[in-house]
Amino acid sequence: MSHHFLDVAGLCFAYPDGTEALNGVSFRLEHGESVGLVGANGAGKSTMLLALAGLVLPSGGTVNVGGTILARNTVGEIRKRMGFVFQDPEDQLFMPTVFDDVAFGPLNQGLSVPEVSSRVRESLEGVGAAHLSERPTYRLSGGEKRAVAIATVLSMLPDILVMDEPSSGLDPKGRRLLIQLLKKFTHTRLVATHDLDLVMEACSRTIVLHEGKVAADGASREIFENAALLERCHLEPPLCMQGKC
């Protein structure tokens, strides 16, 4: 049985001021699935991702990553299996050089130096950023930062990739490269984004969040053809379905 699944059941979370961000969210991702998580601002996408990585502790419900239930004592194990790419790559890159940053995760996993070096090399090659290895992270362009941020996660060999707004701040070419990269990955992927065209290209399935609940879950094309659903959830069909591209 594959350990690369993600099962979320009845997840609830409320912020200290009482705002209910998640209100009984349930879904399951199978091995190798690429799923888009869409919704209007404040729908609960980012909170959802934080809860998956145990960065905020849900007030109810369960997160099951490959058979391990998220709890205080399993959060380390969960984070080993789940690669989390943050919305702002600036937040993700904190080490002196690209190499050090990509090596940060594997070193924390206790790998040997040759193993870490080879993982860093492979991850950077995987995102087409091998030439940036010795560069300081603060001197990279937006697209380069995004590629390196993804490599920092790939180097930990995660079973599941979770990405928050991966295409934000990218130029068209950078975005195109990202889509190609996402298509190339064989990991189970969950991509939270407002870029519905990206979802159409890179995700076969889409989950729509609305007011902290799953409003719809199904094939991306079917979801984006449902005008009433999109209207209700403050969304619009992707540009490619509006005949604008």
């Binding site: 934080l50 990585a53 960065l55 380390g76 984070r79 080993k80 789940m82 989390f84 943050f86 937040d91 993700q92 904190f94 080490m95 190499f99 050090d100 090596a103 940060f104 995760g105 070193l107 924390n108 996993q109 130096v113 870490v116 070096s117 920092t152 996660v153 930990m156």
Partner: peptide, 15 residues
């Protein structure tokens, strides 16, 4: 948070 999800345990290791 970005450090935590990549296994930070209080020690910054470098190569």
């Amino acid at each position: 948070r970005a450090m935590l999800v990549r296994g930070f345990d209080g020690e910054v290791r470098v190569l």
